[in-house]
């Protein structure tokens, strides 16, 4: 069965996606992205031609399964390293603008 492809993206969609990705875009940038994205999406949509009946999506590039590690404390206690590159660290915490939940 061929995949069904969505219609082209419009400006509203581009803005919605940018917001979902937490990328501030100007009106101009968003407008420029519309044809660009449509070009790329239209191009990738040729994948819909491929008959994938009975094909499982790839789950491991090199067939293999997950290794499990032993339950032991081997890490942590490195607060200085964890905070070393922080734009704002106070009292052993990362600081961010106040969040209202």
């Amino acid at each position: 069965m061929l995949a069904r492809w969505p219609m082209s993206v419009d400006l509203t969609t581009v803005k919605k996606i940018a917001s979902l990705a937490r990328l501030a875009v100007s009106e101009d940038e968003a407008e420029a992205l519309v044809p660009e994205l449509n070009g790329i999406l239209h191009w990738v949509e040729q994948l819909g031609e491929v008959d994938v009946t009975g094909v499982e999506p790839m789950t491991a590039v090199i067939p293999n399964t997950l290794r499990l590690r032993e339950d032991a404390v081997t890490d942590g206690n490195v607060r200085d390293k964890v905070l070393a590159n922080a734009p704002q660290a106070e009292h052993g915490f990362f600081a961010v603008p106040k969040v209202i939940e």
Partner: peptide, 8 residues
């Protein structure tokens, strides 16, 4: 779909 094509 892309991961299926990738498997192929």
């Amino acid at each position: 779909q892309a991961q299926k094509v990738r498997a192929l």
